[in-house]
Design a protein around this nucleic acid. Structure first.
Lengths: 341, 341
DNA sequence: TTGTACGCGTTATCAA
DNA sequence: TTGATAACGCGTACAA
């Protein structure tokens, strides 16, 4: 280790090693055309001095920062944080750091804001979470600015190099299959808001499976929510107002599913005896609510890690996959329909 | 607005304005010794050209980045994200950006990691969330590195300039007062883990109030958890194993309180008829669980904003307060004790 | 395979 | 009050 004091610079290393600083620079940047002996000599000095390159100087010279940006528009907290953890798994012990940037997709100035942000920060690349990951103009902006990007989504939004996705549609088909298998025929859907690709995919999966099973899907069995708890309450109330009401509900996310729980409780409808509920996300609420909720869980942290690796180490094996299958997490909110209804 | 192309630099501004670049620099940095006319002339050119200083170059010259760091060790997701939102409220439309850095307080290398991080990134300042905000060595490290810092906590961990805190102890006293007022005398406490100042403060508040009311606090009415759901389940089971059991439980956070809900349900203990429960945090689970939970909510987002302002604009009024009182959020998990027990 | 000289865009020193 | 010039630490032509 070096003695404390002003941190050693590339010049110190060059002087001590008896080479030019360009040679040191080559070692740092893994230039292939270097004699092995030189490289080792320099590396030894680097270790002795405890030298690390100054990121600010590099950023200035390269016109590019060793910073990854996380762009998101307020999906649920757990998703953002899990993804963040994954990104940090990927860049741990590297020179990269993560800067977080929430944006407002309803603001007309959003794209300009992001443009300024990218122009200012000169990011190495950005990771974009849904729902703004679905905005193609934003992706185009990144390309135009020469900023790497990876989008996270529920469908094939982009090329594999710029994408981590899950198989929402297929998973929801599986949910319906499961419910039908144990006897449900009247199944309600609480779908997510317009303009969210995840909401679209999940609805399509739902409807596809219903059709495949030859099941009717009356108009009033499909209610739209906005991914918030209260919209789940309202939607479930609409579904339960009918007589007879559906025996099972799939909600497009856990928060709305929790809202459906709430509505059921207020009416004295027992879960799962009188009503089965399945959510999507496997957020903490799903495990903590009573009865524990059956839901679809997606590997968000792994997706975050892979997304970051696509930017900082695109050639590693872990950076290759772009589809991350979700899985059904079976708990206690589903049962066969009771006969009495 | 400027035409697109390479962004204008300070040299462009200087040339067009017919001054030296140092003068432009003085304008940017609000140097007081500038003739008003010169300043206005330069500012006009800056506006015309759409010039903004290059952060990388500034960072290199100043040896300091215009970056705020958020250091946290995995408290709950909602807390981190709310705080983050507050920080971003504070730095919106400024040159600052936020970099997030989760750390592992159990790692022996934590302090070294953070030291490297600070040395590398040359942050303007860091915001530290509990529980690592309680680590005095970490604060000392920041001072040593010349890095501004603000800690968030449940007590007066530091000087007002480096602190945003809530009044946990007092609030929990209020919770006990409330429970006693409506008739509870046997109240259980599920406390947080050792080494968390928040856990300590909340316990002290609890015990102080119990003593003040002349109420007994048997050893088996106090159970320790670790702030996780499952520990809340276990703790509540211990509390409910007793006969007669407590008529009310205060849990040191919502997640454990939700665990207590779970335990109660499994035993057929009705909330709030047979058992009142109060949590702490006002996290989403509190509003979404059944029955909606009475809990203590603290203004995390405001705290985040104030904390950031203490670093970037310490002289503004909003940066002054360091204590942010929590408040009791009354919902439906509390009722007078039923007679039958 | 290695070194020299210069550029990146800003701030700081010190003299005018 | 302003300006010339030298840092800041690293990368890149281009030459050797």
């Amino acid at each position: 280790m070096a003695k404390s004091g002003p941190a050693p610079t590339i010049n110190d290393v060059a002087r001590v090693a008896g080479v030019s600083k360009k040679t040191v620079s080559r070692v740092i940047n893994r230039s292939p055309l270097l004699k092995q002996a030189t490289r080792e000599k320099v590396e030894k000095v680097i270790a002795e001095l405890g030298y690390t390159p100054n990121p600010q100087a590099r950023a200035l010279a390269l016109r590019r920062n060793f910073l990854l940006g996380l762009l998101h528009d307020n999906p649920n907290a757990q998703t953002v944080l899990n993804f963040q953890e994954g990104v940090l798994d990927a860049i741990r012990d590297t020179e990269f750091a993560l800067v977080v940037r929430p944006v407002d997709r309803h603001s007309p100035a959003m794209l300009d804001d992001i443009r300024n942000f990218l122009e200012q920060q000169r990011l190495y690349g950005v990771l974009i979470l849904p729902p703004i990951s679905e905005n193609d103009e934003l992706a185009a902006l990144c390309r135009e600015m020469g900023c790497g990007y990876v989008r996270m989504g529920s469908a094939a939004l982009d090329e594999a190099e710029q994408l981590v996705q899950s198989n929402d549609r297929e998973m929801v088909e599986g949910v319906v299959d499961y419910l039908v298998e144990i006897g449900h025929t009247r199944i309600g859907l609480i779908e997510g808001p317009q303009g969210f690709r995840s909401a679209f995919e999940r609805r399509e999966g739902f409807l596809t499976a219903m059709t495949r099973h030859g099941l009717e899907m009356p108009d009033d069995a499909l209610v739209q929510g906005n991914y918030r708890f209260s919209s789940g309450v309202e939607a479930a109330n609409r579904l339960l107002d009918q007589n007879p009401h559906v025996t099972a509900i799939f909600a497009s996310n856990d928060e709305m599913a929790a809202g459906a729980y709430h509505a059921a409780r207020e009416r004295g409808v027992d879960i799962p005896r009188d009503l089965s509920i399945v959510g999507f996300d496997d957020s903490p609420i799903a495990a903590h609510i009573w009865p524990p909720m059956t839901t679809v869980g997606w590997p968000i942290r792994e997706m975050g890690k892979a997304a970051a690796l696509k930017l900082v180490a695109p050639d590693t094996a872990e950076a290759k996959p772009s589809c991350f299958p979700a899985r059904l997490v079976t708990r206690n909110s589903v049962a066969p329909p009771s006969k009495k209804i």
